[in-house]
């Protein structure tokens, strides 16, 4: 089982081989409330780190999801189209957003460990 990593933008990342699966965290979906729509990127889209890759709309607000590193979109979670509520019920599982092919593995070193992310969230009050 690959290790789960996080960003300060409240995304989680699981890297297997050269492909990373990305979604938003339990904390992020709690802040957003009920998710009603997820705008996913196109397969084949190429992002550089911090590009807007996705938009998640809840009953309260819209939030942007950024590419946590450079990469090409190789797969998106089509299940979110019919059931965006998966982001609330299984944020770190079936509610994943997209998979990126990692362009520069050295960028993965900037990601937070589970422990570091937990501390980061605790610091948000």
């Amino acid at each position: 089982m690959a290790e789960i990593k996080y960003t300060e933008e409240h995304e989680w990342i699981i890297v297997e081989g050269d492909v990373a699966q990305i979604g938003i965290t339990v904390y992020a979906q709690e802040q957003l409330g009920d998710v009603v729509f997820v705008e996913l990127p196109a397969v084949g889209a190429e992002f550089t780190k911090d590009d807007q890759a996705s938009v998640v709309e809840s009953v309260k607000a819209a939030a942007e999801v950024y590419a946590p590193f450079d990469g090409e979109v190789v797969e998106v979670n089509d299940a979110l189209e019919g059931d965006p509520g998966l982001v609330n019920t299984e944020p770190e599982g079936d509610g994943w957003f997209f998979k990126l092919k990692v362009a520069d593995p050295s960028q993965l070193e900037d990601l937070l460990s589970a422990e570091a992310y937990k501390e980061f969230v605790a610091g948000l009050g």
Binding site: G33, V36, K60, N88
Partner: peptide, 10 residues
């Protein structure tokens, strides 16, 4: 209160 535990949709 903007919502309670079950959330806005419920």
């Amino acid at each position: 209160p903007v919502q309670y535990e079950t959330g806005i949709l419920a």
